[in-house]
Amino acid sequence: MTTFKYLVLLFAIGAIAACETGNTLSDDGKALPILGERDYENGDTIYHKVPDFSFVNQDSNIVNNETFKDKIYVVDFFFTSCPTICPKVKQQMLRVHDRFKSNDKVYLLSHSIDTKRDTVAKLKKYASALDVKSDKWHFVTGDKDQIYDMADNYFIAAQEDPEAPEGFDHSGRLILVDKDRHIRAFCEGTDPESVDKFMLDIDKLLNE
């Protein structure tokens, strides 16, 4: 009988282990770092800062640095006709949106890299289909060079590439920006576990 017990236990453990993803999250309690290159001037450290920008959102309103004054925000880059990673990233952005829905310190900012085709009307339709509003989540378009320049500043790869599906190549990274325009955390927007950890980073930043 004992052998049977062990076999049963072994089977149960095996079944659990076989399908476990094996990635546990750790919260080391340390403050979030400030990411990016830093300069030293007169003995003081200058951190990488998000530069001035100005775009138009799904409701035709201007979105700029002032929009996020004293707030923290999560950034990504996408385009509405993207056949590859975008819907997955948007699914994860939605998780962030839902989790911080009632926290008025947290905003989301999605940039279209297909500035020619993604008109304000298209962005509006896209945002409505996700059932989100611009008082929380901005979908912006604007000057193409400025959008790509901002991608560089957020350390997100984005480029036009005729060889890539629908003509654009970009990464699905999410970036967390603090109220001083510093970049404090990032994650892979296609990977739910990476986003789990990212949301803990947002909690941490909110507690600073």
Binding site: V8, F11, A12, I13, G14, A15, I16, C19
Partner: peptide, 9 residues
């Protein structure tokens, strides 16, 4: 345990 194992599997 056994049933749980089977269900998870």
């Amino acid at each position: 345990f056994f049933a749980l194992g089977v269900i998870m599997y």
